[in-house]
Nucleic acid binder design. Structure first.
Length: 209
DNA sequence: TTGTCGATTGAG
DNA sequence: TCAATCGACAAT
């Protein structure tokens, strides 16, 4: 095991910036794709109104209540998969959403999964595109990213470096929290979009951060 | 069992 | 700006 699991047992907010620059490798169709994480978001489990784990343990969120270092994949909007790395102590349900990455190796394979004519920086820019580029889906939810035999692995962490933070993207609940972290100036970092639908005090919230 | 809604994306 | 599209979960 290359990455020490103990490094992932802090809160999601503590762990999220540690994952910036980390390398994730998948071998979903036999072809390796290596990605360097450039943008993440922290979700703190039962105490975070924006977390899937906010309403407690369910069949879908069970992985998040387990051991740190496992992969949590979920299906949204009827068509997209998104990938998280579970962190924190067991039962805290903390997790870090992988929002963007740079494809370091296996670009042609990543492109073949549906990003055929976009700039290289866009292949894994956005959580659903990142999961798609790595070939991740519900079939991979729960795998141990720190096990060398897994089809998806957290290969290494990067030395701590500068990062920026701001509000989470597309999140309506707890929108004031700056729990999104990214590498400054990286071209793969996704665009900000305010969360929709929910309101505070009956007034629509404007979109600028 | 039914209805609502989403940690998004890509097209118009 | 909006449709696509379906599983999870809350409300019947």
């Amino acid at each position: 095991m290359v990455v020490d699991r103990d490094l992932l047992t802090g809160t999601a907010v503590q762990t999220a910036p540690l994952l910036l620059g980390a390398l994730v490798r998948s071998r979903i169709d036999g072809v390796p794709v290596l990605a360097r994480i450039t943008e993440v978001e922290a979700y703190e489990g039962e105490r975070d109104a924006a977390s899937h784990a906010y309403r407690g343990l369910t069949k879908r969120t069970a992985v998040m209540f387990g051991e740190a270092g496992h992969l949590y994949c979920y299906f949204v909007y009827g068509m997209h998969w998104c990938a998280n790395i579970v962190c924190g102590e067991p039962d805290t349900a903390a997790a870090v959403l992988l929002r963007a990455a740079e494809i370091v190796e296996g670009e042609s394979c990543a492109r073949s999964r549906g990003a055929k004519s976009v700039p290289a920086a866009k292949i894994a820019s956005g959580p659903a595109r990142l999961a798609r580029a790595l070939g991740l889906s519900g079939a991979d939810s729960g795998v141990d990213l720190l096990d060398e035999r897994s089809p998806v692995q957290l290969v290494s962490l990067a030395p701590p470096g500068p990062y920026e933070s701001g509000p989470r993207v597309g999140v309506a609940a707890a929108a004031e929290l700056s729990w999104r972290f990214w590498l400054p100036g990286d071209p793969t970092v996704s665009a900000y979009r305010a969360g929709g639908r929910k309101r505070v005090g009956g007034t629509r919230q404007t979109g600028q951060p």
